[in-house]
Structures are given as C-alpha cells and as structure tokens.
Amino acid sequence: MGAPNHSSYDYSVSLTLKGLEIELVKIQTLLTSIDLSGNKFTGEIPQSIGKLKSLKLLNLSHNQLTGNIQPSLGNLSNLESLDLSSNLLVGRIPMQLTYLTFLEVFRVSHNQLEGPIPEGKQFNTIDSTSYEGNLGLCGFPLEKCDSGKRRQPTASKEIDSKSKIGFGWKAISAGDQ
C-alpha cells in the first residue's frame, strides 16, 4: 500500500583528520551540501564524491588539493554550485562537467589548470572571474585558444609540509541507486 522504505543512509567513509582516523559509518544520501573550504586539506579530490548524487553544493575551496578535477563530479546531476578555487589543481577541466545542467556557480580560480574551457550548456553562462589565476586556461569567456602554442601555467605554490592535513579518504561504498 505504501511506498517501499528505502534507507536514506547508503554511504560510509573513513577520514583521517589531524592524524586521527574517523569512520563516518552512515552518511545520508539526501545530503545536499558539503562545505569543507579553508581547511588546509591536501591530496586529490576523491573520485567517490561523484556518488553523492543528491549534492546541490560542493565547496572545497581554499585548501591545498592537488591532482586533476575528477570527471566523476559530472555525475552530480543536481549540483548547483561547485567551488574548487584557491587550491593546487592541475590539468584540464573535464568535459563531463558540462552534464551539470543545474550548475549556476562554478569557481576554479587560482589553481594551475590548463587547456580549453568546456563549451556549451551552463559553461556558456560562467563569468571569466571564475577562471582567473589559471594562466594555462583558454576559450570562452577567456582568450581564444591558440592551436599552436599553449600558455604557460602559473608557477607552483609551495606547501608548508608542517601544515599538511590529509583527507586520508578511503572508498565510499554505496548501494545501487
């Protein structure tokens, strides 16, 4: 008679924070906002964040995250705001992010990103200030990409090894959705 009772707790994650391992056994799949900005987190963005499909806001700005922007973030189909600014991210902005049709806020400023900015859909509405501080980026709304030469990426920022606080993330296990 009633709808089947689906558990709203399908995810778990282990975090290492200040040398202490914390097990978050149950995270609601209905979680809509994650703001971990300004924490001096290091390491790469976990691919498993792409499984949190109810997210509307993800803010990982003002940390010391490295590596590439995970293409799995393109799975966050409800995402309205993604802020990855002021980190040490490298590489290209994944084309998979063009799947985020509800995206209103997208910030990757002050990283070390390079290559063409994805075109189409919501990316045609993003202001140039969202990309500043990435000398290697090109394309709308910045300068047109030169097919012969790439612009030089910004110089590396130094990380104080004494202030490293790692995510220490382990895989998030999820039930089928």
Rank of each mutant, 00 (worst) to 15 (best):
G136N: 02
F106L: 06
K170N: 14
L36F: 08
K51D: 12
Q152K: 15
S12F: 03
Y9W: 12
I165T: 08
S12V: 05
Q112P: 01
I22D: 04
I172M: 10
F140T: 12
L76M: 08
Q47T: 10
V108Y: 02
L30A: 15
G19D: 07
Q177N: 12
D160N: 14
C145P: 10
Y9R: 14
I172Q: 04
S156R: 15
F123D: 01
G74P: 10
S85T: 09
I22Q: 11
Q96G: 01
N111Y: 02
F106I: 01
N5T: 15
G139Q: 11
T32K: 13
D83H: 05
Y131R: 05
K51R: 13
R151A: 10
N75I: 01
T32F: 03
T16N: 13
L24T: 12
Q28C: 13
W169N: 06
I117E: 02
L15S: 08
V108Q: 02
F167V: 09
S37Y: 02
L15Q: 07
E143M: 11
K170V: 07
N75G: 05
D176Q: 13
G38K: 08
A174K: 15
K18W: 06
T66W: 00
N5F: 13
L31C: 04
G91S: 09
L31V: 05
Q47P: 04
S37N: 05
H110T: 10
D127W: 00
L30V: 11
L36D: 01
G50T: 13
R107V: 01
F102N: 14
S156W: 07
K26N: 14
G19Y: 07
L24D: 15
D176V: 08
C138M: 06
E21F: 03
N68Y: 07
E143D: 15
G74R: 13
R92A: 09
E80P: 00
